[in-house]
Amino acid sequence: MQVEIRNLVKNYGNSPKNAVDNLSVTMRSGEIYGFVGPNGAGKSTTIKCLVGIHPFQSGDVIVDGVSIKSDPLAVKKAIGYVSDNHAVFEQLTGREYVNHMANLYKVSPSDRAERCKKLLKTFNMEQNFDKPIKSYSHGMKQKITVIASLIHEPKLWVLDEPLTGLDPRSAYQLKKTMREHADKGNIVFFSSHILDVVENICDKCCAIEDGRLKGEYDLKDLRARGVSLEELIVSEEYPEGE
């Protein structure tokens, strides 16, 4: 299993500047891949191109050998996505929403029941599953989108700023779930501003700035060398003497 973002170029409207400019990243099975960069660097745009929300001008996204251009539905079926705004259909209950998503991803009733039970317990959502989503707090909405995104056991799990707004217990559970998901041979790809988190849970990470790849890091290697990701990235952003 391999996911490849190949020479991706994305431009909004007639903007003279590309939001994502010739970006190439390769992720392999079993990896948690962090995606860092300052505000407006192009992280969310890249993610939106990766999951099929945004069309792009050139380049490609290849998931397990299948191009999103040639077979978008097959690629989308392999992806689970947690958006940064956690928008969900507020009129539905948590159960209705998760069930709807399971229908769209054609998950068998036995699989959805089993996964749902486990995920609800993990994220402590059993008591709220039958309540209308409009009554959920921000964190609960986030958790229900996480559960819905995992209901089809995606090979590639993409999360955009997933830890923002979560309580400590849920944040811990989410990080644990990310690790478990990668350990099953899947790929987890997430963006974050919190470098500590990226450093602690990721196997690899890449930094992006102005839509371009700034650097790609093997965190095991960095740890072995005693180099802090935070110091590395911040010092590159603000070199000494400036």
């Binding site: 399971a102 229908n103 009733p109 749902c116 309540k131 409009k134």
Partner: peptide
């Protein structure tokens, strides 16, 4: 009251994508 539990809990039933939408 917004946090009151919805009545009518039912199992996760499978449907075609079209009907679900």
């Amino acid at each position: 009251d917004k946090t009151r539990e919805t009545k009518g809990v039912y199992a996760l039933k499978s449907k075609s994508a079209f009907l679900s939408l």
